[in-house]
Amino acid sequence: MEKLVAQNIQDGKPYEITIKDNEIQSIVITESEEIPEFYFGPGFFDIQVNGYAGHDYNLVQDYFLNLGQISKKLSKKGITRHLPTVITNSKKQLGKLFHQLTLLLESNHIYQKCIPAFHLEGPFISPEDGPRGAHFKEFVCAPNWDWFQYWQDIAGGRIKLITLSPEWEGSNSFIEKCVESGVKVSIGHTSANQQQIEGAVKAGASLSTHLGNGAHGILPRHPNYIWSQLAEEKLCASIIADGFHLPKEVIKVLQKVKGDQLFLVSDSVALAGMKPGDYETPVGGKVSLTKEGKLHLKDKPGMLAGSAMNLLQGFNFLLKNNLASIQEAWKMASQRPEKYIFTETEPWYADKKKEFIILKKSKDSQFDHYKTFISGKETFPNTIQSINYEQ
């Protein structure tokens, strides 16, 4: 039996939490005047995970259950739910990747809880160097509804989010079909002009994927596609807060403009949590991971190849640099992305009240993961040791 006092991040009050046999027994408000070192609140929700800790959603596995390690390891960082993100590839290869994800979810109910949907990032993005990022150019193409339906059928209808660039002819019609079918559409890896972005928003696009990244190194002062997306009030925006993708002052500006429409993603790849060095991966090909945690194309240090962080690190980055209060940062890592992807009428919300995380505040005002609960039970309690992936 374990009892601890933790502050509720939502109402700011202290509660006594009783845990027995890895299961919550009670959560009761307390009159304790001690300042608790623990905080609890909604689990973090990452809508952009390419891979993590050596496991890759963009690589066809010899044994698909290996991909379950991503959910286990992320749960030890407070991420209770995430969207596996499959990026630009051939029609056939993308089909294989969605097939193995479907098999994973069918293998165990815990993965269904951790993975409520999928994110397709590409292949309908900009073919230009810069906006294309680390995506392979040979597979970039115009939106194709028949192809998307093919992938969606294999995925069992689980593709809930697609990132594309509206610079292609026929983009608006494709966006309208996605929205009508219940799929959220995000603008990303784009070199679209003002009119094309306006058209995409009218067609139903509602998000900017990792705004400020997946862009040319040099842009006109104005107009450009970053200003255009910032100006669209109907666009929410996700950002990567790892200290490499966006400068602190840019995050401040994005917060002022987007307000409660702004939230965090990790954009983590399989190398997140790995040792520094040179690697070859399905995401970006030959890449280098520095000791500081920056991941870039091996021959192009200025071209990032995804992120080597997790969402808890992004949360801590905001706090360390006074970019958000703990309440604001927590919302950016949990409730806002969740609210964007899902509605409260969906069955997925059935046991939400029993899902939360406990974080422990350290001496430097950063937070470490302590426990994660889904359906009132600690997830993967004894199957994996906590590992420090912080930079």
Rank of each mutant, 00 (worst) to 15 (best):
D242G: 14
G188Y: 08
K72F: 11
E232N: 10
I87N: 00
M309A: 15
I384C: 14
K320T: 15
L312S: 10
A215K: 12
F124K: 12
G133K: 05
E121T: 12
F139R: 09
G188P: 13
L161V: 08
F45S: 01
V283Y: 10
S26C: 08
L246C: 04
N144T: 10
K320H: 12
T281I: 08
Q194L: 15
N50I: 01
V250C: 07
M303T: 15
L207V: 09
Y52E: 06
T163W: 01
V86D: 00
Y389A: 09
A305D: 00
H210S: 07
I125L: 06
I110L: 14
Q195M: 13
K286D: 14
E390K: 02
H189T: 06
I357H: 07
K361R: 15
E328Y: 05
F356H: 06
A117E: 02
L230V: 08
L161S: 01
W330T: 02
F373I: 02
H296S: 08
F40Y: 14
I17S: 10
F315H: 02
H135V: 12
I29T: 14
A329E: 03
N316K: 00
A192N: 04
T190W: 08
I240F: 02
D56S: 03
H99G: 11
S126T: 10
L65Q: 14
N321V: 13
L262Y: 05
L161P: 02
S307K: 00
I17M: 09
A142Y: 05
G284W: 01
E390I: 05
L120V: 13
G68F: 02
Y52T: 05
